[in-house]
Design a protein around this nucleic acid. Sequence first.
RNA 1: GGAGGGAUGGCAGAGUGGACGAUUGCGGUGGUCUUGAAAACCAUUGAGCCGCAAGGCUCCGGGGGUUCGAAUCCCUCUCCCUCCGCCA
Length: 431
Amino acid sequence: MLDIKLIRDNPELVKKDILDRGGKDTGVVDRVLESDVRRREMLVEVEELKHQRNKASEEIAALKKEGGDASGIVGRMKEISEKIKSIDSRVRDVEVDIRTLMLEIPNVPDGSVPTGLDEEANIEIRLSGEAPNFTFKPKAHWDLGEELDVLDFERGAKIAKARFTLLKGAGALMERALINYMLDMHTTEHGYTEVFPPILASPASFEGTGQLPKFSEDMFWCRNDDLLLIPTAEVPVTNIFRDEVLKEAELPVKYTAYTPCFRREAGSYGKDVRGIIRQHQFNKVEMVKFVHPDTSFDELESLTADAEEVLSRLGLHFRVVALCTGDLGFSAAKCYDLEVWMAGAGEYKEISSCSCFTDFQARRANIRFKPSDGGKPRFVHTLNGSGVAIGRTVAALLENYQLDDGRVVVPPALQPYMHGMTVIEKPANPI
RNA sequence: GGAGGGAUGGCAGAGUGGACGAUUGCGGUGGUCUUGAAAACCAUUGAGCCGCAAGGCUCCGGGGGUUCGAAUCCCUCUCCCUCCGCCA
């Protein structure tokens, strides 16, 4: 949520940002402004009445103490009380209207974000590593996975539905190994504290991070219990501090979490239909930071570096892309995507998204810190990034480390997490 | 699922109709003392909104009600805790 003062003082900027993001409805800004004016007019009126009431209450108390008769003044106050009640309820209605509108307005992009409506305008920041050379035509991971009997798409779809996959044998082991490999790196080398949060979260938590109310269609709901399956650990982990006040000295707080993630992928029919790139359920290690406002964009750089390290050490080739205004997530002020090379598909695929949300989420979730100098509480800045998506890493490893005989090499960094396994081959008696 | 208890400031925890925006303790900040620190002592310290300001208004889990006036009384919702039952 934006600061209403920003909308008041600079409505044209907010409108421009909405258009830059590819939004069409800048009318919300005007509707917020109209309601804001009405709210303040009513406040002036009702506060004057309340002032009268408070004065009268004092008089009545004084009169009663002296045993005097207060019936006249009491009668007049009855009328004023009724008036207050009716204006108060109108003020509340307008405030609800304003909040409802404000929740639909996206964050303001940072000045360094390239302007553009789609991914064409994204800017490649750097490349890391090199794409492997093959003397043969590399296969797609879904073919490799089925041939090695580590991915079973048929069974996954039978158990649940399409876009659910059954991992088997070395595939399941690699999934688990990657989780541990990433968590260990972030906790022992990058200074994050590991947490394991609830996988279902309340609508209030979803509103705090910006997934609700706007993206309700993308979520799996448990309607009977008014809970939602999380689409990313960002939701529960950021909400750890909802409605809390941290001490300035406690910042930055850095958490990392492994969780399953659930997305309905509404509107992505026909995209990445094969393989494990786009699943309704996938695993992810996430990093979340709560930081001082002065440091947030530096923290974004180091967060991104932390994610890059995961890929570098696995020997994967990737590029870092700065997203343009149109590609930026709703809550983000700035975002880098890490796109890993997929040898089989011959293209880069997003494997991590590292974002700085400035105070946008903190305002919605009411996460503040108390300055050490004793000043008023201020909103923290929040950041998060995948560190990284597990399923897509499995796909990348299969495709980039495949041999001409269909086996797949396990990179050295992962071997200790896979009982020393150096190569994945088809089991003798697959079942 | 059944029975009961609770929700007050950064935290803990008093407060049963007007003198309470709220006793007190902890924590925070400033100071005295000290070579420095700790301890001790003194002072100070809630948040939000409206307003150029002076100042005003609101807030004791949410909503509604009673009343001239509600942290306090009534209704309702949510959440938390305890005991019993069931279950990993």
